[in-house]
Amino acid sequence: MVLNSLPWRRKTKAAQPDPFEPTPILRLAYQAPVKLLLYHAYHTITSLRSNPTPSQPPIRIVCMSDTHGHTIDSVPDGDILIHAGDMTVYGSIPEIQAQVDWLCSLPHKEIVVISGNHDTYLDPRTRPSLRDDQRAGAVDWKRVHYLQHRRLSLSIDVDPPGADGEETTHLLARETKSRRVRIYGAPQIPACGDVNVHAFQYPRGRDAWSETVPEDTDILVTHTPPKYHMDLALPSGMGCEHLAAEVRRVKPTLHVFGHVHWGAGHEVVWWEGCHDAYEKGMRIEPRWFKGLLNPGLWWNVFRVMYRGIRELIWDKVWGGQGPNTIMVNAAQMHGNTGKLGNPIQVVDI
């Protein structure tokens, strides 16, 4: 995203709230009361569902994004470390290299990185905006896998439970398994700043995603969120609707992103009727007396609750788990404060 402290940031007028700042709930209750109900009904019901069962043995994924030149002293252990972009503030080679050097100093077996809109040098279209000394030379990626519209297949050796403990036996050591993980990374985002300075932007509303992600992708890494998921969904959402459709088509096990700092956290999207109703309802403009007289909007509120409760019962009573994707907004920056503050997200798949 575009940080308030950057010199090219235009100050917004009081009548034009910053879309990257959360809208106060009282204002939302006035502007879009039915969509607010829809949003909370969906998230309340889905939060009660069981967590997806990871494959055995599980692979631990450590997720971060939007470090903006900062380093973190204590990073949780894991098999794969993923950084979903915005390593830097200005996007110069020295800034990028400093982040790469820090990431390479961490003990994770594999490190995967994509670019964000602040990583200016990595987009040839925005590279000329940097001074000559900021773009002289090249980035030494060392052992980092840098993905820019690229697919990566990794073989991860996973130790069985107890293999690192005091009771380790030779038999357990021989039972170490190798799992294949397919990762796809892409940096493009809907435009949110100067297209000559901020990298990998496309006009908001343009489809930059359809049929771009390989169907066998296990982990998708993007900088932008999908629309209506951990992207400040109300009042309008800062993510991309075309990315959301592509994630639905592919259904990766894990989708890691960042960009919208206030959306940090994780959720599980179950690709079932409750989710369908949620997205359809969120796409409806709250007209007709702020949506209160819109039957289509109310119908989707009803569908979220009815289908959601049915799916919750199927989960809790019969143990059924349908297709799902774990979505992680891994932004480390605490809002637009310029300081890190969000926890690193850790997921077992």
Score class of each variant (00 low, 15 high):
Asp133Trp: 08
Arg127Cys: 05
Ile80Ser: 09
Asn51Pro: 00
His118Glu: 00
Ile82Met: 10
Asp123Cys: 11
Leu103Asn: 11
Trp102Arg: 07
Ile61Tyr: 12
Gly69Trp: 09
Val62Ser: 07
Asn117Cys: 09
His108Gln: 12
Leu130Arg: 09
Asp123Ser: 03
Gln99Tyr: 11
Ile96Asn: 06
Pro52Lys: 13
Ser105Asp: 04
Pro128Cys: 05
His68Asn: 02
Pro94Thr: 01
His83Glu: 11
Ile80Lys: 12
Ser92Glu: 06
Asp119Ser: 06
Pro58Phe: 07
Arg131Ile: 00
Asp79Gly: 07
His83Ser: 14
Val112Arg: 12
Lys109Leu: 10
Gly116Ala: 06
Cys63Asp: 04
Trp102Glu: 07
Gly116Trp: 04
Val112Trp: 10
Ile114Asn: 03
Gly78Ile: 07
Ser92Lys: 03
Ile72Gln: 14
Trp102Lys: 06
Ser129Pro: 09
Trp102His: 10
Gln134Trp: 14
Thr53Cys: 10
Thr67Leu: 15
Pro52Trp: 15
Asp123Leu: 04
Leu122Val: 00
Thr53Tyr: 09
Thr53Lys: 15
Glu95Lys: 06
Pro76Gly: 07
Ile80Asn: 06
Pro76His: 01
Ser65Met: 02
Arg60Asp: 00
His83Met: 15
Asn51Ala: 15
Arg49Trp: 02
Cys104Ser: 12
Ala98Val: 01
Pro52Ser: 06
Asp86Gln: 13
His83Asp: 07
Asp133Met: 06
Arg131Gln: 10
His108Lys: 11
Val62Trp: 02
Ile114Thr: 12
Gln99Lys: 07
Pro128Thr: 01
Glu95Trp: 08
Ser105Cys: 01
Thr88Leu: 09
Val89Phe: 07
His118Asn: 14
Leu48Asn: 01
Ile82Thr: 01
Ala98Met: 08
Thr67Ser: 15
Gln56Arg: 14
Val100His: 05
His68Lys: 03
Ser129Val: 05
Arg131Ser: 11
Thr120Arg: 15
Gln97Met: 10
Ser55Arg: 12
Asp86Lys: 08
Ile111Cys: 15
Ile80Gly: 05
Met87Lys: 09
Met87Ala: 13
His68Asp: 01
Ser55Leu: 14
Val62Pro: 08
Glu110Lys: 14
Thr126Phe: 13
Ser47Thr: 05
Tyr121Lys: 06
Thr126Gln: 11
Val100Trp: 08
Arg135Ala: 01
Pro76Thr: 03
Trp102Ala: 00
Tyr90Gln: 00
Cys104Gly: 03
Asp123Pro: 01
Arg127Pro: 01
Gln134Phe: 14
His118Trp: 11
Ile93Phe: 11
Asp132Arg: 13
Thr67Phe: 14
Val113Tyr: 03
